[in-house]
Design a protein around this nucleic acid. Structure first.
Lengths: 237, 237
DNA sequence: AGCTCGCGATTGTCCGTACAAACGCACAAG
DNA sequence: CTTGTGCGTTTGTACGGACAATCGCGAGCT
């Protein structure tokens, strides 16, 4: 672990624990430099991170004071299914049911803003958590991306897109609804006919507004809920 | 003006103007160091700022690529039901079914972090869009806020809290699921028994982490879907 | 007493160097 | 054909030094 990060963790825990409380002055950079036996740039590296987190405010000629004891709440980020569960320490499996290049349904064509004759990779996967089926996912990715049906789709799809194809996902729009499970999906998800399911439709974008992926997921609501943290802005209304 | 800031402005304008477009690789730090005649730390200072702004992504062993040409889209903000619809130009009505001070259920007590004997204002409202019932909402607000059962609850509840009581909501957490509608709710929502419904549970906070409101909503999925825009961060996985 | 000047202290900027870690690629080995 | 080994490139981390900009405060002058 890098030096500056250990110093960062130490300082952050001291601030959170109240060893330094709001309004207090931190030791000077030079004091830390000598007491920790590191160079000043290392100290500054740690302090810059704390500044970015909004915990401290350095002022030239004065010193560095603590302005918050905890980081401000972060809104939820766009995460793939695999990432979302891995973050909570729950391992997931994916079973690829089909992966083929097809002509997209019109609704997919609209969402991905495809050209008239453009084809897509259609990926159907069953997601499992501890062996039990949880979600049935239909992914649509433009075939022009160059991702073929033969790749390994059991891991995080976003990483596959980002690492292999130099496209970086910037944001996504989710639409969440509820419906009665379709019979075909019911059998795969091991649900009784007529059960309610959570439906998640997501469009992911690269750059400023270019859609790169469209997903429709059907999720068992008994073992999953969609969680999101939202900030309240001044212009919310 | 500091050197690194001039370099920063130059790079930013080149990225915004398309001189370097999304996916392009920036010159290496060493190349900038020589071409601009500054030290590497100055270059890195500028690059770090661009990284913080989300415009570039440096990767060890590879280089620095442009991932955005403009500042990112804004993620969704926390909005109340009335605000959410008003924003899209759809007027809504609210019918107050009951409003009383009660002892909260244990689950509400946990979410609002209430003291053992603390009471809450329990508000049950039916939300209508163009005369048709859309959602049944149970709001819980600590009685200590001073909002009585006799106030006007047909408008935006957040405005009521914020304007009259000087509390500003900072963020909220939503948990969205699907379920089969309960019989009592079915009749109010004019749904057949056994219909699927969308359930939204929200906790809203003031300050760092003080919960101020808890809502459970049961929504007809045939005329509503929960929409949210999420950014993709660098530490999403 | 009140004001000004200058000094020390503190953070900001900038330079140079060195090594580590991660990655892509060519090339050799099996 | 596959594997892995090594090498060069690029960013990350860390060191040390120097000067600038800013501020608080006391010494000294009016």
């Amino acid at each position: 672990m890098p030096l500056y990060q250990r110093l960062l963790d130490l300082l952050r825990s001291q601030i959170e624990s109240g060893r330094y409380s709001v309004g207090d002055q931190l030791p000077t950079e030079h004091a830390m430099r000598t007491s920790f036996g590191v160079s000043r740039s290392t100290v500054r590296n740690a302090l810059r991170a704390l500044t970015d987190e909004g915990l401290i405010r350095p002022t030239p000629g004065v010193g560095t004071v603590v302005i918050r004891s905890r980081p401000p709440v972060q809104p939820s980020l766009l995460r793939g299914f695999t990432e979302d569960f891995a973050r909570r320490g729950v391992p997931t499996q994916a079973r690829v049911i089909s992966a083929q290049i097809v002509d997209p349904p019109s609704q997919v064509r609209d969402r991905l803003e495809l050209l008239p004759e453009e084809q897509v990779l259609h990926l159907v996967r069953l997601r499992l958590v501890s062996g039990a089926p949880l979600a049935l996912m239909d992914n649509f990715v433009p075939a022009s991306l160059g991702i073929g049906p033969e790749e390994d789709f059991t891991g995080p799809l976003y990483e596959l897109i980002e690492r292999n194809h130099k496209y970086y996902i910037t944001y996504g729009r989710d639409a969440i609804g509820a419906a009665t499970v379709r019979p075909e999906a019911a059998s795969v998800l091991e649900l009784p006919i007529g059960s309610p399911v959570l439906t998640i439709k997501r469009t992911a974008f690269i750059g400023y507004d270019r859609p790169i992926e469209y997903v429709e997921a059907i999720v068992r609501p008994d073992h999953y809920e969609y969680n999101v943290t939202l900030l309240r802005g001044k212009d919310a209304s």
